[in-house]
């Protein structure tokens, strides 16, 4: 990234060329920090549901067993948190959001979604960022059940955006014809959150 004014005596870590590292990020290696702002819910798979509604032809709710029976797919790659850590080469297993959206059949007027959690957490995304193989409902991490503090039993996974967009304890998606700021977005964070353009805060 383009730096500011040099600070006397600051050298920084050795420069390793890492084309996978977005500007302003560092490699967290084995760490996977937990940064949720709310109490981690005790949510059993049997109590988990996932709903798609709003501007769709067929609003639908899936139970855990129904969602787990859908054709699965996985993501292997990197994730990037706005607090500046990135994590390389992680593997999540789940179901592509395309599978759920195809079943609910979005109205052509739908442009955005609000993803919401069983805790009440919300985050907004353009519909185009969660379709076309770019987003998942994730159930596993490194082939094990997703831990509760990381959003288990199921979280949204949108790895090409900052990770606050990947709502933990995912409860549903509502399709809208406009952008509706979510929890962090109302608290000053960027509406889209593309790490490669360093869209951390509103105004970036």
């Amino acid at each position: 990234m383009t730096g500011g004014h040099p600070t006397r005596g600051f050298v920084g870590r050795p420069r390793t060329h890492n084309p996978g590292l977005p500007p302003g990020q560092y490699d967290a290696r084995d760490d996977w920090p937990v940064l949720s702002a709310e109490v981690t819910p005790e949510l059993a798979p049997d109590d988990w549901t996932f709903r798609v509604d709003g501007l769709v032809a067929e609003p639908r709710t899936w139970t855990w067993d129904e969602a787990r029976a859908l054709p699965g797919s996985s993501y292997e790659g990197d994730i990037h948190c706005v607090t500046t850590w990135s994590k390389f080469g992680v593997r999540f297993g789940g179901v592509s959001l395309d599978v759920f959206l195809d079943a609910a059949r979005p109205d052509p007027a739908a442009t955005h979604v609000v993803a919401y959690s069983h805790t009440g957490y919300t985050t907004n995304l353009p519909l185009a960022d969660v379709t076309g193989g770019k987003a998942w409902v994730a159930f596993t991490y490194e082939d094990a059940p997703l831990p509760a503090e990381h959003g288990g039993p199921a979280r949204l996974l949108v790895p090409h955006l900052y990770f606050w967009k990947s709502a933990k304890w995912l409860a549903g998606l509502r399709l809208l014809d406009h952008d509706e700021p979510g929890f962090w977005e109302q608290n000053g964070y960027h509406a889209r959150g593309n790490p490669w353009e360093e869209q951390r805060y509103a105004g970036d």
Partner: peptide, 28 residues
């Protein structure tokens, strides 16, 4: 459909205060 969206759950964590976007965007 232009209503404000409120999630249908009991645990909604409210936001607190408006943040100055200009302050957040400017390095000082």
């Amino acid at each position: 459909m232009s209503e404000t969206f409120t999630p249908p759950t009991a645990f909604a964590v409210p936001g607190r205060i408006a943040v100055s976007n200009r302050a957040a965007a400017t390095w000082q």
